[in-house]
Design a protein around this nucleic acid. Structure first.
Lengths: 112, 112
DNA sequence: AACAATCATAGCCAAATGGTTATGAGTTGT
DNA sequence: ACAACTCATAACCATTTGGCTATGATTGTT
């Protein structure tokens, strides 16, 4: 019998980031900051409805927020929503050994 | 147009860990160490062929290794295969800001 | 008012996914 | 030798997934 120890929405986060297009959208949002669906569609190379669906999945994982402004919707990344994944990694990933360098960078604080 | 910046097999890692059963298997392997398919099947709560298929996916992501011994196959976790995910997180996740505490634990070295 | 732009939703479809049972190959025990 | 065990693969199935086009609601522009 499986007992889940991962946080509740960890599953949503893992699932959301499993798709490369969705990862690319999230990456673009963190790199370039807030973007409209239109801009993201141009970037992603898939149809606008496809982008909208991806954004819905990301939103379900709380990885993005949206803000309506007139006829366009602006989306932005919420990197702190990655917490469950980081928590999981810390726990099950490199708990005993790791070879990843300069993870200290993760500890750098920057104002939101 | 999407330009991939993530390491080649990052996709495999993300995809492998997207499934909760697969995550649970990986967790069990890191917690309890090497396990046979039989033991993992008892643990996972799904059929033995299902476990074998999951292990194949994990193996494709290099998250597990296997070692034949007689009629049983022993699987073990390879936490360092999580590197692409950690790399990705460092890059796109908490590059600017983060609220995750005590990630220094990730830096603790333990002999393999 | 009419038109254009932006986006979400609905409806559709092919492919992938995660599960099952059946089976066979190899290994161990009697 | 034979029975039992371990595991991978095959074959199948239902559901999910990721894409598309069509459409409609809303907002901006002329």
């Amino acid at each position: 019998m499986i007992v889940r120890v991962t946080p509740a929405n960890a599953n949503n986060v893992f699932r959301a980031l499993a798709d490369p297009t969705r990862r690319a959208i999230f990456e673009e949002l963190t790199r370039q900051g807030e973007q409209t669906v239109h801009a993201l569609t141009r970037y992603a190379g898939v149809s606008q409805p496809a982008v909208s669906k991806h954004l819905t999945v990301l939103k379900l994982a709380k990885l993005v927020r949206h803000r309506r402004e007139g006829r366009e919707t602006h989306y932005r990344a919420r990197p702190d929503a990655l917490a469950p994944m980081v928590y999981w990694l810390r726990h099950y990933g490199a708990f005993w050994r790791d070879r990843f360098d300069r993870l200290e960078a993760l500890l750098e604080r920057m104002e939101s």
